[in-house]
Design a protein around this nucleic acid. Structure first.
Lengths: 199, 199
DNA sequence: CAATTGTCGTTAGCTCCCTAACTGTCTGCC
DNA sequence: GGCAGACAGTTAGGGAGCTAACGACAATTG
């Protein structure tokens, strides 16, 4: 659904064959890499299908979930991250939490506001800022939508045993960490880039 | 880089907490699901970074790899899928192989042709069809680009042992199969489709 | 042989995300 | 106090994917 491409993955023998021409090609690494992208895309597609049926995009859903934390600051912190205390409220905080640019967040909030899911209010203290809040309509929507969403993901992961899930999470966490290390060049020497990111 | 969102994943305790309010939420399933999306996105981003540096998008790269099979039909079938015999040549075949629509493939071929990577030629037999072929420039580009690309994926997966990679592939394959079963129409069981959620 | 049906490639218009640049506001340093 | 710089939110424009519809052609069928 999103992107990525590649309908059928190459067979392992083809990778072995190609490795003869390209010595840099590690067959088992390539196999794991391709399966990761494919499975991630498949899982994403399942969830997106669910969201589309309710007329909401991944991006908008993510914003709603981030704001949900602000509405219920105590128990149901579905997105309770490591260092965060209160839920995000301003577009800039939401953009940081959703890993999109502020410009993108403006567009997401625009459509969410147009559809009556959020309301923008000017910050009384700092007049540069806006405060974004869920409307009762959004609260109602989430309470009706989330159970089905959870059942979908539970069904998808239902093919794995509890132990397999733990193993999967462990391996994926390693990969994510390595990806982060490979993207940020000077991870060890220059911590100047990530502002206030306690990891 | 692509989409998906969600910077920091929720802690497991938060999932447990949320499960009290949403009985349908399976904490370990949600954890595995979120980590899968996150890791897939991270891995995708690493590769896309590499491609961007060479001024080529994922979609265009995928088309080049599919056509590469046509150029070298014998050994270096990097994308050798299960049932395919000869490499794809027409836009429709490429669209099927890349899992995009024919309309999207038209755009991809447009830009690839503009940049001199492929050439369109009318099919002499069936005048509805076009034949797409790699240019020598594309061949040269791939031979220079691929080794670095393979090294990148090998480095990313280098954090896993050979056994871990096999385990990962096995688990991901299960998930992909389940996703396919959930997307395609009434697969086998579960006629308890809760699709109609009153909104 | 003519008509229907289906396929191929393309176009037009949409969504979602991005970057770059802008306006308004706050802050810190003389 | 006043001004350079930083920051919040927005706007404008672009890329990549989608669907829906089209004209040209082929295949099937009466």
């Amino acid at each position: 659904m999103p992107l990525l491409l590649l309908k059928d993955l190459p067979r392992y023998e083809c990778l072995l064959e190609s490795a003869k021409e390209f010595p840099d090609l590690d067959p088992s690494a390539a196999e794991a890499y391709l399966h990761l992208l494919r499975a991630g895309d498949d899982a994403f597609g399942v969830s997106e299908r669910n969201l589309d049926a309710h007329g909401i995009s991944q991006g908008r859903f993510c914003v709603l979930m981030l704001l949900w934390r602000s509405v219920h600051p105590r128990a149901p912190n579905l997105l309770g991250a490591a260092g965060a205390e209160a839920g995000p409220r301003t577009p800039a905080e939401l953009a940081a939490g959703a890993n999109v640019t502020r410009a993108t967040m403006t567009g997401l909030i625009d459509t969410l506001e147009r559809d009556g899911f959020v309301k923008r209010e000017p910050d009384p203290v700092d007049r540069r800022m806006m405060s974004v809040r869920l409307t009762p309509k959004a609260d109602k929507f989430l309470r009706e939508f989330l159970p089905g969403h959870f059942r979908t993901t539970a069904k998808l992961m239902g093919v794995l045993t509890e132990a397999e899930r733990k193993t999967l999470v462990r391996l994926l966490t390693k990969i994510s960490a390595q990806a982060a290390a490979m993207v940020s060049p000077a991870a060890s020497s220059a911590p100047t880039e990530p502002a206030a990111q306690a990891v």
